[in-house]
């Protein structure tokens, strides 16, 4: 028993890594495959978390819900609603270059955060939604955690294999062609806006899935959980540090960044009170700096996308006369 309890913390970290992996893979579908800059990952995460919470939680007077649906229905609803929110956003923005999408997705995340905080009858405002069912929640704590980890990891494996298969398919090749040379793809008769919309909506659904699994893990969801610092910006660093376009790289990115992030929290917690708070804000500097450093020194990530058809652009071309 003692041995298992020593594993408490690692299991906890591993569950979070899996949950954030859904967000990161969703973002990779949008950015890595389709070149879409979604700066509001937290918004789609929140839609998923709240949807599953409303569908599965017990009745509370004065709040929409009490459906008490099973976990699986909540998760399915979460993915569906996240996709439905993404659809009109994508329709409006994907006609333009990426910057507009970035601005609008920031707005979406902001609007959803305000909605979650204000609409008591749907989201429970600042108290949030409590008492969500949790699969294997009746087991003793360690076993329950372990079982939840197994469940989340199994879903992640399925998602990973699905996305990988899709990526290797003609669809994936076409998406990369569009991302790398939109004009050429358009000239070949590809419906570029529609394909991008597909990627955007699919990615959003995966973010919704991540949100749902997050909510069921803690059995609750509150507006605080929709922190763009973590649920949007940290996810970005995971994806581009890991290597956008490459799902295994992205998973490695999630693991590395999340471990650094939790470790840095561990360090700042050791500081005296008066510095601990400031150090907490200092960690945001770390996120920004990491983003800059990756863009500067590792624009293709630690594990760049494997592209057999192209020369590795980082190696100097020998036929070039510098």
């Amino acid at each position: 028993m003692g041995f298992l309890e020593a594993l408490n913390y690692p299991i906890y970290v591993a569950i979070f890594i899996c949950v954030y992996s859904f967000l990161a893979i969703g973002l990779n579908v949008q950015w890595g495959y389709a070149g879409l800059f979604n700066a509001g990952v937290a918004g789609f995460f929140a839609v998923g978390a709240y949807t599953s919470a409303i569908l599965t939680s017990p009745d509370v007077p004065g709040r929409l819900g009490g459906f008490g649906l099973p976990f699986i229905a909540g998760v399915a609803g979460a993915m569906l609603l996240s996709a439905l929110v993404a659809l009109p956003i994508g329709k409006i923005c994907l006609r333009f270059r990426g910057d507009y999408l970035a601005i609008v997705t920031i707005g979406v995340a902001e609007a959803i955060r305000i909605f979650a905080r204000s609409e008591e009858w749907i989201t429970g405002s600042s108290r949030g939604i409590q008492n969500l069912p949790r699969p294997f929640g009746d087991l003793p704590y360690v076993y329950s955690q372990l079982a939840y980890l197994a469940l989340v990891a199994a879903i992640l494996l399925v998602v990973y294999l699905l996305v990988e298969r899709q990526s290797a398919s003609p669809w994936g090749r076409m998406m990369r062609a569009i991302r790398d040379n939109e004009v050429a793809a358009m000239a070949m008769g590809k419906d570029v806006p529609f394909r991008r919309l597909q990627a955007f909506v699919f990615g959003a659904a995966l973010m919704g899935l991540g949100g749902a699994l997050y909510a069921h893990l803690g059995r609750s969801i509150t507006p605080e959980a929709i922190d763009p610092m973590i649920a949007s910006f940290l996810i970005w660093i995971m994806v581009i540090l890991g290597g956008s376009g490459n799902n295994r790289g992205v998973l490695a990115g999630v693991t590395i960044v999340w471990i650094i992030w939790t470790a840095s929290e561990f360090v700042t917690d050791q500081l005296p009170m008066e510095y601990a708070l400031q150090a907490k804000y200092g960690r945001i500097f770390l996120i920004g700096l990491m983003l800059q450093l990756v863009l500067r020194f590792r624009p293709n990530g630690i594990f760049p996308e494997f592209r057999p058809t192209q020369k590795d652009s980082r190696k100097p071309d020998k036929s070039d006369k510098a």
Partner: peptide, 30 residues
């Protein structure tokens, strides 16, 4: 942060400005 990105797709510079935003905010908060 931006000069070295001039010849790359502009969206990377947009992303970099987000990094700048977080860094500036953090400095103010600290």
């Amino acid at each position: 942060f931006y000069e070295h990105l001039r010849k790359k797709p502009k969206i990377l510079t947009t992303m970099s400005t987000l990094g700048t935003a977080l860094m500036l905010r953090s400095i103010v908060q600290v």
